[in-house]
Write a protein that binds this DNA or RNA. Structure first.
Lengths: 342, 342
DNA sequence: GCGGCCTACGAAAACGTTTTCGGAGACCGG
DNA sequence: CCGGTCTCCGAAAACGTTTTCGTAGGCCGC
């Protein structure tokens, strides 16, 4: 039903080749012809069929957002949403559309990265949720296709990473607690061999050492980034430890902080009066808890936006692959108590 | 680089037509040939190029998720996320991929629904976030393309709606408050001419009348579904009304409930001891507030899943367009106080 | 007046599929 | 032995673009 390039050509009395060149701003088409074609295309409501376009052209191809683990509930909630908002914000500003594909570790094994890209004529992709041992990580480094990973480090000539300085940020967060008089700090840890967990652990460790503290294995609660696990972990901690053995919970994510807070409250204790809690990520939801959680804001939306912009620039050859480290912000809210000097 | 149908054909010693038919389970290809082609395709890692496929075929086309207003912050948060999870859950189970397009009222004016579909060879779509006066609503009823709207009512032979019985659900929620002794109820209202607002209002009204109560204009706080507005509204209410003039806030969405709760707390009052609050939607975030909010769970994820399934069935001709009303669940949590009989 | 170089456009191949049509060969009944 | 009906596959058109190549015509300089 809608007009094809042929209809435009017929109406303008030229061939389809000319229409295509005119509309794509090729140099070798007369100014008047070009304008006439433009006008007619406009009148007919002509829109090029993207399928045909990307089939034919080696040049204009699609850009994709590939989400791994979206369906699993780990790393819950508005992280991905915010990321998407940033990405689609950029897309909308630049008149491009971005297709979204949901995968997981299993489907990665079934269909290779290159196959996925080939299937959908993907010129470049933004990938989020990749674990360091996922098949696609290796595939990425072998690929010549521009792509941007978020929060996963992949070194290769065509791969950019956007991330933040997790070590420094978590160091800063830890220091924040220490500055407020906390010495007895329990770390609520994320998935054990996740990149982000290790970096954050390093940050905490760094801050501990600098302040002459030691992070004992005893004071670490391991989780898989799940709220329930944090709650259960804190609960278990108190069953095996003196209530006075801790004054603050240093959580590797906001969801863990929420879980920890739940557990503390369910014991009849108050936050931050009895125990302080800090989170990490800057999820929206930390504004809705009571008290609001002091956390490190990753500025997730900006992260998405910058990832999209970076990929866009790479595809247009105006920016090389690079590691982009975004700034973070420690946002003070109400979940930390300053301890008097005893 | 990846194998095309031609490579498979060459390796199998047949023509591309045969390969295509074999792989698409056409009847007129010999069993052994089919198996041989299957095996070779497998070995070569052949995957059909979706662009070419949907360009050529009138049959196998794409299915899209079209989100309107995703970038605007109204109707915040995990509503869309949950919807997506449901939709992509279905997609993943059925081996289809669903492309996502983000639009708004403005882009709807710039590019018609048909054009959008044509551009991307969209056979059917799931639409969410449409306002009743959006251009695409009219376009949908004129279209012959199967589609499913979520929470927007569009009557046409090819359009299904998945929704819930908003009137009944809100009635039930209102009744819940009344059953617990609340008579002085303030309604925190959503966007004025939104379909959902009107339905929920009807539900509230219905319950009021049935119980011999009246809903006075004075006891309604209008918002645009924004948390801040709810907070400001409640704040303003208390500046102009007696604190005893209300015992419960009946909110048209969870976000509004969160806003209302904020305002109540910032006045130094407690929930639910001093004021009860109920929300609506069943957002995840209502589990993280303190107290957890009693609300009507829309089962958003299921909503997405069912919408995808419905569209899928329509596209395959095994289910007609219909209005699908999903069940809701009132979930009791901690934000409502039962008032003693005075 | 002729070879050369522009400019502007047409012709046609190519992208990778699906699908229609036709027919070669096998088989069978009479 | 012949006409008919299957089964299976090849040939080729079609989908709507982009892009390469070729060339007609104009203009210039000599």
């Amino acid at each position: 039903m809608p007009a094809t390039i042929r209809d435009v050509a017929k109406a303008a009395g030229v061939t389809i080749g000319t229409v295509s060149r005119a509309l794509n701003n090729y140099a070798d088409v007369n100014y008047h012809t070009r304008e006439r074609i433009r006008r007619i295309a406009q009148e007919l409501g002509y829109r090029p069929n993207q399928m045909a376009r990307s089939l034919s052209s080696k040049h204009v191809k699609n850009i994709a957002l590939i989400l791994s683990g979206f369906l699993e509930d780990t790393m819950l909630n508005d992280f991905e949403t915010m990321l998407m908002k940033g990405i689609y914000q950029f897309a909308s500003e630049h008149g491009i559309d971005i297709a979204m594909y949901v995968i997981n570790s299993k489907t990665q094994r079934e269909k290779s990265y290159e196959q996925l890209c080939y299937e959908h004529n993907i010129a470049g992709a933004i990938l989020f949720g990749l674990k360091t041992n996922d098949p696609y990580c290796a595939a990425l480094s072998a690929s010549h296709r521009p792509c941007v990973t978020i929060d996963t480090e992949v070194r290769s000539p065509c791969t950019s990473n956007v991330t933040l300085d997790d070590v420094a940020a978590f160091d800063e967060l830890t220091q924040y607690l220490i500055d407020r008089g906390h010495r007895k700090i329990v770390l609520v840890h994320g998935r054990k061999n996740a990149m982000v967990s290790m970096e954050r652990l390093a940050g905490a460790h760094q801050a501990f050492v600098r302040n002459g503290l030691t992070l004992t294995h005893d004071a670490i609660i391991y989780t898989n980034f799940l709220r329930e696990e944090a709650a259960a972990g804190v609960d278990a901690y108190f069953r095996t430890h003196d209530p006075d053995s801790v004054t603050a919970f240093l959580c590797m994510s906001d969801m863990l902080a929420i879980g920890a807070m739940e557990a503390v409250k369910s014991m009849g204790c108050r936050v931050p009066a009895d125990y302080s809690i800090v989170g990490y990520d800057g999820l929206e939801v930390t504004n809705y808890t009571d008290p609001k959680i002091t956390t490190v804001d990753q500025n997730i939306k900006k992260k998405g936006y910058e990832a999209a912009r970076l990929l866009y620039d790479m595809l247009h050859g105006i920016r090389p692959a690079q590691k982009l480290v975004l700034p973070h912000t420690l946002v003070e809210r109400g979940s930390v108590q300053t301890l008097g000097s005893e």
